Amino acid sequence: MRLGIIGAGAVAGLHAHGADVLDGIELSAVCDLREDVAAAVAAPWGAAVFTDYQAMLAAGVVDAVVINTPHSLHRDMVLAAAAQGVHVLVEKPMATTLADCRLMEQACADAGVVMVVGMIQHFMAEKLALQAALATGQLGRVLMIHDYRSTDYRPGTRPDWFFDKEISGGGAFINIGAHCLDRCLWVGGAPAVQLGATTLRRFGAPVETDGAMELTLANGVQVRISIVSDTPDHIDEMLVVCELGTVTVDPRKGTFLEIDGTRSQLHATASHDIQDAFTAQLADFSAAVGGAAPSVSGDHATHVVELVLAAYRSAEDGTPVRLDEVHVASSPLG
């Protein structure tokens, strides 16, 4: 499978390295508006360099692409790839409206190509250790989840497009919150039926910098997500409360279990965990192209976008949103 990368920033190098170590995949092209940025990712692997993704798709040098670009660009890039018969791994969030999500899914289905949404949490070693512990039954049912993430949404700390709603779709919720929603739904084991949210705008930012969400899942699991900018220490922790014990998960430390006063470590963080996750995600995508079911379904990825939309609506209205009552298919995030 000849793989192209559209968007050479952030995690492009992790995708490129994954392609190098996996059998049956080669990095054949990298595209970025800045030729030097694309060349920096492409050079170690001898991949072609493009500054126009349409030209790359039309050149016939890729069978599949990773779309690693600002959120609102995902739709048009997926549609263009589908029109060329090219499979797609598109980074989260899938899109900025539910209408775009559905359009992307339909276009890929009509073209007979595979689209998978990159939800990296499903491949992180510390999260997999948590899921393995839950699968043994030793913890009983999941009852409650608290997910606490820090970030930095001070203007100037990240590229300008993150602060432009037309391009990003929002602030901390659609970016960091999408990760939190994804992993909480996965660990909680059901979609959400109700969501309430509040947001803050600090530092003079035009998008939300901080916020909190409270969710009830269809199976009764209670979820609270807190996202805070510019904290004294970086925080990325899930606390999972079960009938018979608790688990904490932190990619900087590992996975820890406590049952009846006895603590044990299920996973110790290693320096290669993040690269291993991106490699595993790419292998999962390749398997999906070959006919296997992907680890992350399109329905799940779309539901994450639906919840981000609902969170913005709840924060604006000041009331919880029932997911069976909200109709946001064509509503922009904001």
Rank of each mutant, 00 (worst) to 15 (best):
G169W: 11
G170L: 01
G171W: 06
G171S: 05
A172P: 04
A172L: 13
I174W: 04
I176C: 07
A178M: 12
A178L: 04
A178D: 02
L181I: 15
C184F: 12
L185M: 14
L185H: 12
W186E: 09
W186P: 08
W186H: 09
W186S: 02
G188W: 06
A192C: 14
L195F: 15
G196A: 12
T199N: 11
L200Q: 14
R201S: 07
R201M: 03
F203Y: 15
E208Q: 03
T209S: 10
D210E: 09
A218C: 10
V221D: 06
R224I: 03
R224H: 06
I225L: 13
S226M: 11
S229I: 03
D230G: 06
T231H: 10
T231N: 10
D233G: 02
D236L: 05
D236W: 06
M238C: 10
M238F: 14
C242F: 04
C242G: 06
E243V: 08
L244V: 04
T246K: 12
D250V: 03
D250K: 04
K253N: 00
G254I: 04
T255I: 04
L257S: 00
E258D: 09
E258K: 08
T262L: 14
T262A: 02
A268P: 02
T269Y: 13
Q275R: 06
Q275L: 09
D276R: 09
T279I: 02
A280M: 00
L282Q: 06
D284Y: 14
A287S: 01
A288L: 12
V289C: 14
V289R: 12
G291A: 06
G291V: 01
